[in-house]
Amino acid sequence: MLRDVTFGQYYPGNSFVHRMDARIKLVLTLLFMVGIFFVQSFAVFGFVTVFLLAVIFISQVPLRSVLRSVKGIVVLLVLTAVLNVFFAKGATPAEQPLWSWWKIEIYANGLKQAAKIFLRLVYLVIGSSVLTLTTTPVDLTHAVESLLKPLRVIKFPVHEFALIMSLTLSFIPSLIEETDRIIRAQKARGADFDTGGLIKRAKAFVPILIPLLVGGFRRAEELANAMNSRCYEGATKRTCMRVMKLGWRDYVAAFVTVAFFAGIFVLYAMRGSWGGVTWLYF
């Protein structure tokens, strides 16, 4: 049961989005995340929504799976938005509050800002989950390694970083299995994890953590031996089996996404200079 945690969110498929190069997906997701902050009006949010829905549709991941990631943090998002309502002032000093009580004032502008922040955060989460839903953790690791390669110039240990990510991924399932086993073993000895106050429960986890930690060290030693036996000597002269090659999908997706966000950046840069069409800006 715990096993399925491993593959995180990945939703197996063979769609256009799944078959894109992980590096491109990662970069475009980052572009999307930055771009979101340059969206000024609800009208443009409409465009972004259409864009996002189109991507989700192409990826063939059910909308429900995508929204599941939002569900987890919806409380946090609502809280952020609500706080924004209280702290925002009017768009102009002349704007009258819609409602006020003691020192609390609510402006129409505040409501708008809060709604936008809420939308931005939701889209951030959705955007990143489209990435993780369509890319295996292994591919993501490779993408990160490949994208960080330039950092080698400043002596950043890129290979080691990627190796740690990859080892972590491959050890999560066995650690989960082991945790499961230890919990059951401790329960069989009469440990009680399910009743009592917070402190009592927290204390009950010590007998799980200690064997897990000790086991972890043993594992690490065995793994180090296995890696040494297989001629591991660090990053020097190491080659890689995986070849990452850009295909037409990557060019098309990159072109469309970059064009879309270029448009958004242009709108942002020109805000205020087209007097008439305020719906694009507010």
Partner: peptide, 19 residues
Amino acid sequence: DNQMVASIVEEDVAFGPEN
């Protein structure tokens, strides 16, 4: 379990030759 370095069989086997 303690000898696997990658989470895909193919890549695990490739670890040696890569090194």
